[in-house]
Design a protein around this nucleic acid. Structure first.
Lengths: 357, 357
DNA sequence: TTGTATGCGTTATCAG
DNA sequence: CTGATAACGCATACAA
C-alpha cells in the first residue's frame, strides 16, 4: 500500500543494521547471528518487504536466471507435437537445476516484444529448424550469449543435441524386414519448414535434417521404398498420407513406416477406414515413443527417443557454457519398443493358405 | 572476444559523445542528429556493442518486460490440450503488444528455479486451477504485482477471464433436444485437479469450476442425464469414458455430450469401435472448437470458445493494471458450430420404418 | 540537439 | 559476524 515499495535499505534502517547485512540475511551467503536475522526479518515483515528486487539482483550479478527458448512456429503449432512438449519439459527441468526459468521467444517478432536482441536472458535454446534460424543465430552470437540447438542444423561450433535418427529408423526397418515385409511405403515428416504433402521424387531437396536422416535410415534397409511426405507431424496429416499411400497405383504395401507417432496414428486410422486390419493386413510403425493421444487401444511399435532427456541435455550444456567451459555436442540414442501394430507380412503366410495364431 | 563486454559508456567515449546521447541513439526517445547517430552506431559496431544490457534497462525502468505464466501441471500435461496452447498463444500475442514476453513458471517448484517470489516479472497470469493456486496467489499478492486468472476461481478482487460455460453447454444441449434426443449421457472433464474417472453421484463435490458449470448447463436442459467424469481432457480418456457409457446398464443414449473436443474425439472412436455409427446411431458433441487432431474426416458439432481471445484479454488486463488502472473481470462467449457428428435421434425416425437421405 | 548529474536496488569485497 | 564502499549499466530530468 506504500507509494513506494520498500527496499532493502529501508529494511536495514528499520532493523538498525547495514544494508549489506540485511542483504546477506536474504541471500544466506554469509553467516548471520540469529538475533540480527530476526530483527531484519521482523523489519521486512513490518514494511511488507518480500525479498530483493530481481531486477536489481540480476544487474548486480550479471545473470537473470532466464533461458530463452526460441520457437520457430506459433506456440499453437509448435506445441501440437507432444515430442516438442516433452522435450520442453525436460529443458525446463534441466535449466531449473541451475536455477533458471524458460522465456518463450519467437524468432520473427515484428512487435515490441523482447526479441532475440533485447531479451534479458543468460542463454538461448533454439528448437527445431525454422527458416529464420540462421539470422536468429547471427543476432544471438553477436550478443555473445551461449546458444544450444536442439535438433537443428546450426553448424559452426555451436553445441547441438541430436538423435541417432538414421540408425534408429534403420533399426525399426530391419524389424519389419525380419517379419518378412518387402513391399513397404514410408510416410515422412515435412521436407521443408513450409512443406506441402506429396510423393518424394528422387531429386527432391530435403531441407529438414530429421526428415532426411530418417528417410536415409529407412532406405538403408528398403532402398526402393516409396516415400510420401506429410504436411506436418499430426494425426490428420498422417491420415491424409495414409489415404494417399493406400490409393496409389501399384502393389499395396504390407507395411508403412511413419516418421512420427502422430503420423503413424493417422496412418493406422486410414488403414482401418479402408477396411483393412492393423497389423494383419498392414503393419505400421511410428517414431518418437511419446504417449500419443488417440492410438488406444492399440500400442504402437516404435522407436522411443529420449525426448525429455534431450531437453535436460540442453540444460546441462547451457550450464556448462555459463560456467565458462565448452559444451560438447551430444548425440542421444533411441530404443526399439515393440507394440501390436506390426506383425508378419501377409504375403509371407498367405501362400501356405492358413494363418497361424 | 573482449574480456569485458562493451558498455554504452565505452561506445560514447569512442564516438566522442556523452553517454546519455549514445543512450538516446539506441532508445530513440529523443531526436538525434544524423551525424552523431552515425558516429555512435559506428563506434558500437567497432566495439561489438549490440545494444543496452536488458538487465540494467529493466532496473532503471522498473520493468522487465516479462510476464510470468503459472502452469499448474508439468508442461507436458498442461500443453496436451490444444485449448491451453491456443490460449497461451493468444496471451503471447496480448503481452507482446505491450512489449513483453512469457516466462513459464510452475507453482510447486522445489528447486532453485525462479519461483513466484523471485521471478523478474512485471505481472502474473495464473492458468487453470491447480491445487496450489491459493498459496501461489498469496505469494504473488505479497509482491504487489498485478495478477490475472484465466478460468480459475481466484476470488477476492482479482480480475478473471472466463467463459459462459453454463450457457454455452446449455445451448448445444438444446440443439440436441431439438433433434429429438431425450436419452443423453454426459462425459465431463475432471472433478478435481487429480481426479479419477467414474460416474458422478448426486452428492459428489465438483472442485473444478469449468466442469461444474458445463455440467449444470447440460442439466438445465437434460436434468436427469447421467454424467461420467473422465480422468482428464484427452482422446484416450474420452475413449475410456465412451466405453464406460456404452457398456453401462440401462437404455443406450442417443446422444453423448462431451465437455471438450478431445473427449468427444475419443467418445466418437469408442462409439465406432462398438460397431455404431456417428451420428446415425449416436450423436456426439464437443466443446472448445479448437482444431482437434484425430477427428478427421468428421467435423465435430461443438461450441467454439474464443481461446486465443482469452489469452489476448488477459494480456490486455495486465496492460491496464500495469498502467495503473483497475482491470475488469472479463466474460467471453462461445458460439455454436454445427458439424456432422449430430443428427436426429434414431428413435425419432426409426418408428416410421425408413431413414431419409 | 547535446551534455551533466543522479539514482534505480542490490550485493561483492574487504576491513574491522 | 557486521559495516562501509563501490560498482553493476543504464535512462531520465534538466540545464546548456
Amino acid at each position: 500500500m506504500n507509494a513506494r515499495r520498500a527496499t532493502i535499505a529501508d529494511v536495514a534502517r528499520v532493523a538498525g543494521v547495514a544494508a549489506s547485512t540485511a542483504s546477506v540475511v536474504f541471500s544466506g551467503k554469509t553467516p548471520v547471528s540469529g538475533a540480527t536475522r530476526d530483527r531484519v526479518l521482523a523489519a521486512a515483515e513490518q514494511l511488507g518487504y518480500t525479498g530483493p528486487d530481481p531486477r536489481a539482483t540480476s544487474l548486480r550479478r550479471g545473470r537473470s536466471g532466464i533461458v530463452g527458448v526460441v520457437i520457430g512456429d506459433r506456440l499453437r503449432t509448435a506445441f501440437r507435437d507432444p515430442v516438442t512438449t516433452v522435450m520442453l519439459d525436460g529443458l525446463a527441468e534441466g535449466v531449473a537445476e541451475q536455477g533458471a526459468g524458460l522465456l518463450l521467444l519467437r524468432d520473427d517478432n515484428e512487435g515490441g516484444e523482447p526479441s532475440l536482441r533485447s531479451a534479458p536472458v543468460d542463454a538461448f535454446v533454439l528448437v527445431g529448424c525454422s527458416g529464420h534460424l540462421r539470422e536468429s543465430l547471427a543476432a544471438i552470437r553477436a550478443r555473445g550469449i551461449p546458444v544450444v540447438v536442439v535438433e537443428g542444423d546450426a553448424g559452426e561450433g555451436i553445441p547441438q543435441i541430436h538423435l541417432d535418427n538414421r540408425e534408429a529408423q534403420a533399426e525399426i526397418a530391419r524389424h519389419l524386414r525380419s517379419l518378412g515385409h518387402r513391399e513397404v511405403a514410408l510416410v515422412t515428416l515435412q521436407l521443408a519448414a513450409t512443406g506441402s504433402p506429396g510423393w518424394i521424387g528422387a531429386d527432391d531437396r530435403i531441407a529438414v535434417d530429421v526428415t532426411r536422416d530418417r528417410l536415409e535410415g529407412a532406405r538403408d534397409v528398403f532402398p526402393a521404398a516409396r516415400a510420401y511426405a506429410a504436411g506436418g507431424s499430426s494425426i490428420d496429416e498422417g491420415y491424409a498420407a495414409g489415404e494417399a499411400v493406400l490409393t496409389a497405383p501399384g502393389p499395396r504395401p504390407t507395411a508403412i513406416l511413419a516418421q512420427s507417432d502422430l503420423l503413424a496414428a493417422g496412418v493406422i486410422r486410414a488403414v482401418q477406414d479402408a477396411g483393412l486390419v492393423v497389423p494383419e493386413d498392414i503393419s505400421v510403425t511410428g517414431f518418437d515413443g511419446v504417449q500419443v493421444d488417440g492410438v488406444a487401444p492399440l500400442t504402437l511399435t516404435t522407436m522411443v527417443q529420449p525426448a525429455a532427456e534431450k531437453g535436460r541435455a540442453a540444460g546441462a550444456a547451457i550450464s556448462a557454457m555459463l560456467a565458462g567451459g565448452p559444451a560438447p555436442t551430444i548425440r542421444l540414442s533411441s530404443a526399439f519398443r515393440p507394440g501390436n501394430t506390426t506383425g508378419p507380412a501377409p504375403t509371407a503366410r498367405a501362400p501356405e493358405g492358413s494363418a497361424s495364431a
